[in-house]
Amino acid sequence: MAAAFLSRPVYPGLALVPQARRHIFALEGAGAGALTDLAPDAGALTRSDILYLPRDPDGAAQAVALAALGAASLWQAPDLAALLSRLAGLLDGARMGTRLYAAGSEGFIGQVLVVAEAAGIDPLSVATEHRGNRARRVQCVHCKTVAEEVTTQPCACPGCGLTLFVRDHYSRRLGAFQGVCIDAEEPGSAPAAEEAFR
């Protein structure tokens, strides 16, 4: 794994804020395990809403495990856009004392934080835990297209087709790493792509 760099977000792991009036858990794929491992007490669960985006291969089993927690509500999202939209709806009109928790892939967490910030939540107050692969969301700095699930270095921009070097520079606002053309100075000199983010 690449060395830490200073714009890289830190995901310290989910820790319950016991005083919270309401807990909202936004979970993706293996991120479900972050909540089941946390095993909140029954009192906290009665104040908890869970939004879950299952991912193969363990999505169904994890959904069962989440349901077994007995939270106030559990909603399974058909896709990411639906989850983010539902989250925005929950946060609209929410009160101080509502605490948000996000667990899953890095790209998922990044997009949950974008929704949170838009709702008036300071991103630093959101508990996050990275579970799952290390694939990166990458914004092409040239055409601004965001590539999802990038696992190679360099990668191809799905928008403009340039070969991008994925920099160790991360934008919380965009929830994405920065991709910069790797062979701009000598077009055609890009090295072959190698698996880098798994």
């Binding site: 101080m96 004392g97 300071d122 630093l124 107050s125």
Partner: peptide
């Protein structure tokens, strides 16, 4: 009182 109500330190 704010912490007891679940407010984050940033606020």
């Amino acid at each position: 009182a704010a912490r007891d109500a679940g407010w984050p330190d940033q606020a």
